[in-house]
Design a protein around this nucleic acid. Structure first.
Lengths: 345, 345
DNA sequence: TTGTATGCGTTATCAT
DNA sequence: ATGATAACGCATACAA
């Protein structure tokens, strides 16, 4: 091997371990050991290799590493709705939990289209992801991807309909309970619940938690029943007008979403009711732009979605290590106090 | 667990081309050609291989393919703020444009932290992404990643400060112009502009477009000047109160964001002004939850962010094919008409 | 301590 | 038309 054989790496292509090795004057095996802090490498040699790597700005080819390790070091994030507001924090939590380690995240947006989902699933599997997180668009159960994918899967936000799978979701029942609990602690007794689409399981869960907590105080819902309709400001306004007719003594409203809460707030203001002095209002979601812009700023229940994503990532990491889990795990919501609720003194 | 002597592939691991080949009774070379629709393969053989692949649910290892092709078939999506609302549609547009082809997207959220950004950049480069899309959190120029990354980069939403780089952004000047143009077409003459944080370049760009269009009609801004402050509903309300004092003849407001527009709307309503009969209001962003929930629903300028992401993906694809570009490309905004504006008859 | 050789799964180049 | 074989870049068991 002649001396001027030390060809600088092929034009354009990133330097390889071979380039580093030849620059340091060692074999690729030694170079590999040196860079990976394996033993059986002389201190001086290690130093030489390290310098060569730095000089070449060497970065190991993760694809090649993945081939030998039989692990790609990637996870797939399969979402059904990237445009929606709710999948986002989950996604961020997951990305955060993984990105800080040495896992990378492959993103795929299925857009709630079954064909696209299958397409993306094949693509992710073909890339040999070590695991999969599936984030739904709605909190309702969704069809399982199946058990024979060859990699562990964790469902986040929207649980799988197969109890064999592992899912992490927000505890809507506890959330509803928490909301009413807060209102009760504020001394309210005539509490109504205005919520959204009755086809959402979450609507009923939140309502159930609310009614349960009410019952513990010997109370029932003001207005006589849960008011379902749509997740909109318009419905919040409409429902409130109805409510003020039926229940003149109304002193609190639990809204099933922050959008609805905004409508409630506006209608209350328009009717000359002071918030929170006369009527307290609490929302659900902690959708910042809505909750902080309102008059007054909105007290609300935060479903802690980012945490959900983080937990999903943790569970998936465990499953990848071989410690798989199953069933649906519910995680608590958080009360965020702003100015639309206050003690009745 | 019974020992199956004919076990085609190692337990747990996905089937390989070798498994398919041996099942079809051919060499891996032939199997490869058959599955990739190469010529020099007998029709019958091709069929046998295909059946074997289907039976084994074979999916080629993209990592291995990447090794030989010297292309990973992935692009990196480096965002500085996954929580923000504006990077999201860009991201979705990009994912969409790529996902429909055979490119996969590696997501990395730097959280506006330089250290994290470097970390993620190294990780993406290590995964041998074929290209990079950098999505900023704010529309202002950001530091370039540099020219020596070895892969093409396209900056979206927030342009790079190096003109050598390629950036795609929304045309804020044209957006401002479009807003005022619409108001003028509605017959308005006394038009004010309430906008947000003056440290954002976008504020000034939108204002400039507005003033230019006004000047073409021989008009100037009602209130005498652009009203800068913050991107909040509260500022929208406050500014409107000031405005109603100063300009009793006010017949239109161009708000620099939908949040501000919401505040404007509320203050107008409170002052007894009818919208759009007496005063027309137009926003900016087309932030659905804000624009559709207001009273009345908000006419607004849509910066077409999803399109921006799509274009960025297209440009990156071109660059990967060798046709690189440079400079900042601006893309038009779109007028979305709802009920807060209408002709003055 | 260092180097040689093998394999990871696939594609492409050559023989046959 | 089909098959053996050499890459691709890296890690490791084994030999020196």
């Amino acid at each position: 091997m002649s001396v001027d054989e030390v060809a600088p790496h092929r034009r354009g292509r990133p330097p390889t371990l071979k380039d580093v090795a030849s620059m340091a004057g060692v074999s690729i095996a030694t170079a590999s050991k040196a860079l990976n802090n394996r033993q059986h490498v002389g201190a001086a040699t290690r130093q030489r290799v390290q310098s060569a790597a730095d000089a070449l700005n060497f970065s190991p080819n993760a694809l090649a590493q993945g081939m030998v390790a039989q692990r790609s070091g990637t996870v797939g994030l399969l979402t059904s709705d990237l445009v929606g507001r709710f999948s986002m924090p989950v996604l961020r939590g997951a990305e955060d939990a993984f990105g800080s380690e040495k896992m990378s995240v492959l993103l795929a947006d299925a857009r709630d289209d079954h064909i696209r989902q299958q397409h993306h699933l094949r693509a992710l599997l073909s890339r040999r992801v070590d695991g999969l997180i599936v984030v739904g668009a709605q909190p309702d159960p969704r069809p399982s991807l199946g058990q024979d994918l060859g990699v562990p899967v964790v469902y986040a936000y929207a649980p799988s309909d197969d109890p064999q799978d592992m899912s992490v979701v927000a505890d809507d029942v506890a959330g509803g309970r928490l909301a009413v609990d807060h209102l009760i602690r504020c001394g309210r007794r005539t509490i109504a619940h205005v919520t959204g689409d009755p086809t959402y399981g979450a609507s009923h869960d939140r309502a159930r938690g609310a009614v349960e907590r009410l019952a513990e105080e010997g109370l029932t819902l003001a207005g006589g029943e849960v008011m379902y309709d749509s997740w909109s400001e318009a419905w919040g306004r409409g429902a409130t007008r109805l409510l003020l007719d039926r229940e003149p003594a109304l002193d609190a409203v639990f809204a099933g979403s922050d959008q609805i809460a905004r409508g409630v707030l506006d209608a209350l203001l328009e009717a000359g009711k002071r918030v929170p002095e006369e009527v307290a209002v609490i929302g659900f979601d902690n959708w910042e732009v809505l909750a902080t812009g309102s008059r007054p700023p909105l007290t609300t229940i935060d479903p802690a979605l980012e945490n959900l994503g983080r937990v999903a990532a943790l569970r998936l990491a465990s499953a990848i290590e071989g410690r798989a889990g199953h069933g649906v795990e519910s995680y608590p919501c958080r009360l965020v106090t702003r100015s639309s609720t206050a003690p009745l003194h």
